[in-house]
């Protein structure tokens, strides 16, 4: 807990890193000043794009003592405003899961190469990023905590599978290799409360360490202070739950 007589400093900047297939992509990094060691955090942006909220999110984790990296998962789709690039990816059916996993694995490796990062790295994502965070926890090695916020389409019917997202993440649940926290709004349409229940049932079935928090009066994306979906009380509590979880699993 921050004390008013405490020294605090942060560096935040754009860096280059190697992602899927060894491709060089860019990423936003925020880290607390000091020798560390600090735990790491991979911050996954939502499908609408690599936008300001995720820079602020990376800085929030840095403020709480985590070296955070948010890779630009749309680097290969061209450059422009985050909205224009996001709209292009939306039209293409979203970023391919295989490429996203390669980029997230690269972000984890980048963090682990730093002398001031401890041996613990978590992964955080919202919306499609929540889905990808869960997917990463199941498919990648070397992650110590998953923070899934309203991961849409973790549960997918066969009709919803696409060449870019060929497998429903819930089908990989048995491979989840670390604890997970889930944050959901009960008024969400993607995922619906029924889908969240199915997700939880699968975690329970495979004996995974998890905690799910469901909020009344909240829908999709209720942490986004710049959208009408924002719910102050639920968002404040949700962040407290997330940070308590990361303190427990990554320190």
């Amino acid at each position: 807990m921050y004390q008013t007589n405490q020294y605090e400093g942060m560096i935040a900047e754009t860096v280059s890193m190697r992602g899927h297939n060894g491709d060089v992509i860019n990423a936003y990094v925020a880290r607390p000043l000091g020798a560390g060691p600090f735990p790491g955090m991979v911050v996954i942006h939502h499908a609408p794009g690599w936008d300001e909220w995720y820079r602020e999110c990376a800085r929030r984790f840095a403020h709480h003592g985590y070296v955070s990296i948010s890779p630009n998962l749309y680097f290969r789709d061209g450059h422009g405003t985050p909205e224009d690039v996001g709209a292009k990816v939306r039209a293409a059916g979203g970023a391919p899961d295989a490429r996203v996993l390669g980029d997230l694995d690269g972000a984890n490796a980048w963090l682990r190469s730093l002398p001031y990062v401890s041996r613990k790295v978590g992964i955080f994502g919202t919306c499609s990023g929540g889905r990808q965070a869960f997917l990463a926890g199941c498919r990648l090695k070397g992650l110590d905590a998953v923070i899934e916020c309203w991961g849409g389409r973790v549960v997918q019917s066969k009709e919803e599978l696409t060449p870019n997202q060929p497998v429903a993440p819930i089908d990989y649940t048995k491979d989840l290799s670390c604890p997970i926290i889930g944050i959901f709004g009960n008024e969400d349409k993607s995922p619906t409360p029924e889908q969240v229940n199915a997700h939880e049932a699968e975690l329970k079935k495979h004996g995974k360490q998890y905690e799910f928090h469901r909020y009344e009066g909240a829908g999709h994306g209720f942490f986004y202070y710049d959208r009408p979906a924002y719910r102050q009380e639920q968002a404040v509590d949700g962040w407290k739950k997330v940070l308590a979880f990361t303190e427990k699993t990554l320190r």
Binding site: A47, G86, S128, R131, T162, S190, H220
Partner: peptide, 9 residues
């Protein structure tokens, strides 16, 4: 962007 319902013409 969780529906992924998109068509191009």
């Amino acid at each position: 962007m969780c529906t992924m319902i998109a068509h191009q013409v």
